[in-house]
Write a protein that binds this DNA or RNA. Structure first.
Lengths: 190, 190
DNA sequence: TTTTGACCAAATGTCCAAATTAGTCAGTAA
DNA sequence: TTACTGACTAATTTGGACATTTGGTCAAAA
C-alpha cells in the first residue's frame, strides 16, 4: 500500500468539515484536497453522511478519551465529575470541528450538524450517567435517578459555561466548581 | 368618547400577534380588524415595534402578577420559588402570544420576537433575584450570589420543564419540586 | 481490480418583475 | 378646529424562470 487513500479522504474531509461545516463541504472539494477521484470516495463511503459519521464518531471517541483522562481515581466523585465535564466542554472550544458544527446547527439548522450535536450530547449524558451509577454502587453519593441527575448536571454546566457569559463576565473554572458544589452537592438551605 | 379606538387597536393587534406572530402581522390587517383607518394606528403608536412593545409589556406585567399570586407568605422560600417559577412557565404554555413568540424566535429568528424573549427572561430573573435577596435578608437561606442563583434556578426549571420532555416522559409538578429540592436546596452528597 | 472524472438528475442559487408592507399626508368628516 | 382616513410611496419581500452547483453513478482507463 503506497498511499492510504482512505486516510487521505478522511483527513481531507475532516479539514473541510472543520473549516466550512457539513453543508459547505463538497465531495468534489474533498476529492481534490485528498488527491483522489471523486468516485474513489464512494468506494469507501456510500454517502456524504456516512463519511461525516465516520469523522464525528472519531470525534466522540476522542472526547470520551479526553474525559476519561481527566478522571483521577484518587479524587472524590464530585471532583471527578467536575473535571470530566469541564474537560469535555473545554474540548468543544478547542476543536474547530465541534465549534463549526455547533455554529452550523445553531445558525443554519443543518440537519446533519444537529444530529451530531444530539449524538454528542447523548454520549456525554451516558458518560456521566455511568459515573453516577458507579458512585451510587460504591456508596459515594446518595441514591438518585442517574438519568435525571446526569441531565441536570450537564444542563447546569452548559448554562454556566456557555449561557452565563452571554450577559456576564465568564466564570472561572474554580468558580464553576464552587457553584456546582454549592448547589448540586450541598444544597442551599440552612 | 363613543369608541375607544386605542383599545380597539391594541386588542386587534394582540389577537393578530398571538395568531400570526410579529412578522406575519400587517398594519393593514390590524387596522381592518380594529375597524379604524391605518393612519389612526400611527396617531397612537409611531411604529409597529412600538405597538408591539406596548402589548408585550402588558404581557410581562400580567406574568409578574401571576407569579406574585402564586406566592403564599405562609409557605417557605423553597415552596414559593417553586410555585412562582412553575406558574411563570405554565403561563408561557397557556398564552398563545408567548407560545407564538417563542416559536417565531426559535424558527424564524425574527429580531423583534427574540428581543421580547430576552426581556421576558430578564424580568423572570429579576423577579427571582428579588425573592432571593429578601430570603437572604430574612435569614431564610444561606448567603449566595442572587444573580447567579436566580440564573441557575431558571435554567434548571426551563431544562426540567421544556428540555427534559424532548427525550423523556414529562415530569410532574411534584417531581420537579422534588428534584429541585434535592439538588438546589439539599445537595447530593452524603 | 482499483481508480477515475465526465455525466446526470436533483437541489440550490440568481435574477428581476410583481406584489406586499410600513409609514405618510392631503383631504374628508365630525 | 380636530380626529380620522385610505390612497400613495419608497422600500422590502416574494415567486418563479433560468443558470449553476452538488451528491452520486458508471463506463472506461490504469
Amino acid at each position: 500500500m503506497v498511499v492510504d487513500r482512505r486516510k487521505m479522504i478522511v483527513d481531507a474531509a475532516t479539514n473541510s468539515f472543520s473549516q466550512f461545516g457539513f453543508k459547505a463541504t463538497t465531495m468534489d472539494q474533498v476529492a481534490k484536497i485528498a488527491n483522489v477521484g471523486k468516485g474513489t470516495i464512494y468506494t469507501f463511503f456510500s454517502t456524504k453522511e456516512e463519511l461525516f459519521d465516520e469523522i464525528t464518531n472519531s470525534l466522540i471517541k476522542e472526547m470520551k478519551i479526553a474525559a476519561e483522562e481527566a478522571i483521577d481515581e484518587t479524587l472524590t466523585f464530585q471532583e471527578n465529575v467536575h473535571r470530566a465535564l469541564y474537560r469535555i466542554l473545554e474540548f468543544r472550544l478547542e476543536h474547530q470541528l465541534t465549534i463549526k458544527l455547533f455554529q452550523e446547527g445553531r445558525e443554519m439548522r443543518t440537519p446533519a450538524a444537529m444530529e451530531v450535536i444530539e449524538r454528542i450530547e447523548k454520549a456525554i449524558l451516558n458518560f456521566i450517567k455511568d459515573k453516577i451509577e458507579k458512585a451510587i454502587n460504591k456508596g459515594e453519593i446518595q441514591r438518585c435517578d442517574p438519568e435525571l441527575t446526569s441531565f441536570v448536571m450537564l444542563k447546569l454546566y452548559v448554562a454556566l459555561i456557555f449561557d452565563w457569559e452571554k450577559n456576564h463576565e465568564p466564570l472561572s473554572k474554580e468558580k464553576i466548581a464552587k457553584v456546582l458544589e454549592q448547589y448540586i452537592f450541598e444544597g442551599l438551605s440552612k
